Computed example of a mutant assay.
Amino acid sequence: MVPIDTSTTEANELLAKEVEKNIIKEQQNALSNELPAKINSEKIVVTPVQFNKKDEEIAKQNIQKQTTAYKIEADLKSDQLAIKTVEIPYQIIEEATVAQQISLEKEQAERIKKVEKQYQVLRQTEPKPQRKILKYTVQLPTNSLGKRAKKYSPFAEKESKRFDIPVALIMAIMHSESAFNPKAKSAVPAYGLMQIVPRTAGHDVNKLVRLIDKPMKPVELYVPEVNVETGSAYLNILDQRYLKSIKDPESRLYCTIAAYNTGAGNVAKVFNKKGDGNTRNINRAAKIINQLSPSEVYQALMERLPYDETKHYLKKVSKRISLYEVKSTT
């Protein structure tokens, strides 16, 4: 949406043409240079800008999404602490994590109140709508995702062999995390194709695989080969270290996908009893998981994971694995 301070037809037509040029230029400079945009100028629509309830709700939803991302990062850091400093009881780690998340929720409430006040003022002081926005539709080639996937599949194949992680899982995570955009960046922030957080997954891989006890740098994670190496190595750490007590490969796969997004501690919470001060203990949870079928494990995760984002993530990645599985022929 591009706001302008005029309502004349001539000005709108000129701006529409300018938008077309800018969009084409941006698409040509995009990460996949072979994907030019197709813009149908007949679909350009001019509508008034209003500070309505829908806009306000979107702003509040964005704050909530950002808070969830920060809470998930806190869970991931708790996993790090639990495995690196085994002398600290799980209960103390859990209490510290809960305290941090409560603080994040209070901050979220304050930010939402501020947004509500801002929109209330805007609605009260808004004159008759004079500003206009242009709404346009950009059509990309239908096979653009496939082209980007093909570009990065050699990295997935290489790291699959090195870290004993299925190629299809690596590709499905790239698809879900960034849609194969090597310059993707989230609110946490996480970076690159497999959306690596430098202080959590990046630090784990540096310490346990590269023998470097420090977080990764964002500039490193924007390098596709390094990013896929790091994401694949982290999947191996989850599979062979954090979740190694889960015996069934399919059950462990579901737990690995969820843990990639929210941490092994939150996976453990799904299966451990609340209130015993030991809910983040994945080895304890594994004893319960090992008594369940893979479908029962999946269902439990979908019902009791603490964040809807992680539930959607588990569902998306699990389904997308089949898109990238190699079908053998005889």
Rank of each mutant, 00 (worst) to 15 (best):
L301A: 07
N236W: 05
L235I: 13
N29K: 09
T8V: 06
Q50L: 15
T256E: 11
V49N: 12
E325M: 14
I288L: 13
I170W: 02
M194K: 04
H203D: 06
P198I: 01
R320C: 08
P218E: 04
N22P: 01
L134T: 11
V219R: 14
T47G: 10
N62F: 07
D213N: 15
Q195Y: 04
A187Q: 00
L76T: 07
K158H: 00
D276K: 10
S7C: 15
N281Q: 09
L323R: 09
P154A: 01
Y298K: 15
K158T: 03
Q64S: 13
L76K: 15
R131E: 11
G263W: 05
H312V: 07
A16H: 05
S32V: 02
P306S: 03
Q100P: 06
Y307M: 10
K25H: 04
S251P: 10
F180S: 03
E116S: 14
V267Y: 06
S295V: 11
V115N: 01
K77A: 14
D55G: 10
L221W: 00
K71N: 08
I23V: 09
N227T: 13
S103W: 00
V205H: 02
N206K: 06
Q80E: 08
P215K: 01
V297F: 06
N227F: 08
K38W: 08
I257C: 14
H203G: 03
K287T: 15
S78R: 15
E110F: 01
V228E: 00
G277R: 02
I23K: 00
D213K: 09
Q91P: 04
N40V: 10
Q120R: 05
A264Y: 02
Q27E: 08
P215E: 00
E56Q: 15
Q91E: 12
A300M: 06
L76H: 08
I196F: 03
I58V: 15
T67Q: 05
P189M: 01
Y191E: 02
K161P: 12
T9C: 05
I288R: 12
P189N: 05
L193H: 04
K315Q: 12
Q27Y: 07
A11L: 11
M194L: 09
L314R: 02
A168D: 12
K84S: 14
V46T: 15
Q100K: 13
L169I: 13
N29H: 07
D213V: 07
I196M: 04
Q118V: 15
L81T: 14
D75L: 12
Q61Y: 05
L243Y: 06
K135M: 11
V98A: 06
I170E: 02
I63Y: 00
T310K: 01
G263R: 08
I237W: 06
S160F: 02
I173Y: 05
N272P: 10
L301Y: 04
A264T: 10
S232N: 06
R280S: 10
G231S: 03
Q120P: 03
I289T: 04
P224M: 04
P36V: 04
Y298I: 05
Q27N: 08
N281M: 11
A109L: 00
V19Y: 06
K106F: 00
T329R: 13
V326R: 12
I196N: 03
T8K: 05
L14V: 10
I88D: 05
I83S: 13
N40G: 12
V270L: 09
V138S: 05
E303P: 03
S176V: 01
